Computed example of a mutant assay.
Amino acid sequence: MTATTTLTARALLLDMDSTIVNSEAVVERCWRRWAAEQGLDADEVLTVVHGRQGWATMAALLPDRPMERNLADNRRMLAQETSDMDGVVPIPGAPAFMAALAGLPHALVTSADIALSDARMGAAGLPMPAVRITAESVSASKPDPEGFLKGAAELGFAPEDCLVFEDSEAGIEAGRAAGMRVIGVGDRAAALAPTAHVRDLTQVRVEARADGVLALHLTD
């Protein structure tokens, strides 16, 4: 028997990678290459990368490394990722989910920069939300809550009125730190105790009520 959980909000804040866009193949290719350059175990590196800006991942992995080198590598890797769209596709259910949000309060809150988010949303065939918080918008990477707080403020809603969709530990921590409830998307999120969890976006139905409340119906 199918069970349904319903959460309500006035605005939705959406992570991009592995939440609405599947870019795992590109991320793995780029970070395995970087790990080999640094003499690091690639599998261990891949446990850290998700959700953060690249320079923040590098700082976590190599705490004694000068930040200038991290920033330089970050710029180089962003260029590589932006030129590599092989295997970038929407998460199952994402096209219908994004179509349902048209005209409703929602924002993209991503650790990618403008160019990379343009490229990946385009490759996945997904519409870009009118409000977008990118790497250029913030001074701190997830798990810092700055991005989600800025997204809520730009939409004009209090943090407690927002629901976050996230896949990664850093992203879920950022949503919680912002005082928001979090719907975890995908296998990685299942173990991170989000407010609710879905396998993918085929399990989410959006209902816009007359009073401006958004009801998110989640099925298992």
Rank of each mutant, 00 (worst) to 15 (best):
R205C: 14
A94F: 06
T82W: 06
E160Y: 04
L116V: 06
S18F: 01
L71W: 04
A190V: 14
E154D: 08
G54K: 00
D73K: 03
F165D: 03
A174C: 05
L13T: 06
A9R: 01
A112W: 00
S111A: 15
A208S: 15
G171T: 04
E146A: 13
T8Y: 08
T8G: 09
L126T: 01
A60L: 09
H106V: 14
F157H: 03
M85S: 13
T219H: 04
E160H: 08
K150F: 05
D73G: 09
T134E: 00
V49H: 03
R32D: 02
I183P: 02
A178R: 02
T195N: 10
D118I: 04
D220L: 11
H106E: 06
G151Q: 04
A99H: 07
E154P: 01
L12P: 01
M180S: 07
V185L: 11
L104G: 06
R65D: 06
R199K: 12
A196W: 08
A96M: 12
P66D: 12
L214A: 11
A189Y: 03
E44N: 12
P95G: 14
R209C: 13
D15T: 14
I20V: 15
G184N: 01
A178E: 08
R33G: 15
W34L: 10
V206E: 08
C30S: 14
E166A: 13
E24F: 01
S117C: 05
E81V: 13
G156A: 12
G147K: 04
A177M: 11
G175W: 03
I133K: 00
A123Q: 05
G51M: 05
M1N: 10
E28L: 08
E173W: 02
A193S: 15
H197I: 10
D220S: 12
F148R: 01
M58C: 02
F157Y: 12
L46F: 12
V26Y: 02
S23A: 13
P194D: 10
A42V: 09
A152T: 01
E28R: 15
P194I: 06
V131P: 01
A170R: 03
L46C: 12
A25N: 05
A25R: 10
A191G: 11
R52C: 09
E169I: 07
A140V: 04
A135W: 00
G125E: 01
L163T: 06
R205V: 15
A124C: 09
A153T: 07
T82G: 12
W31P: 01
D86L: 14
D15C: 11
E166D: 11
L218E: 07
A158C: 03
V26Q: 02
A100M: 09
M180I: 11
A210C: 10
E136P: 01
L40A: 14
I114V: 15
G125I: 12
D200T: 15
L155A: 06
T47C: 08
V213I: 15
A190Y: 09
A119D: 05
V48R: 06
V213E: 15
E44L: 14
L163M: 13
I114L: 07
I91E: 02
D64G: 13
A96C: 13
D167Y: 03
N70M: 10
A115K: 09
V182W: 06
A96V: 14
G186H: 06
T110I: 10
P145K: 03
S111M: 07
M16G: 00
A102M: 05
P66M: 13
T4H: 02
N74H: 14
D73I: 10
E207T: 15
G184W: 00
P66I: 15
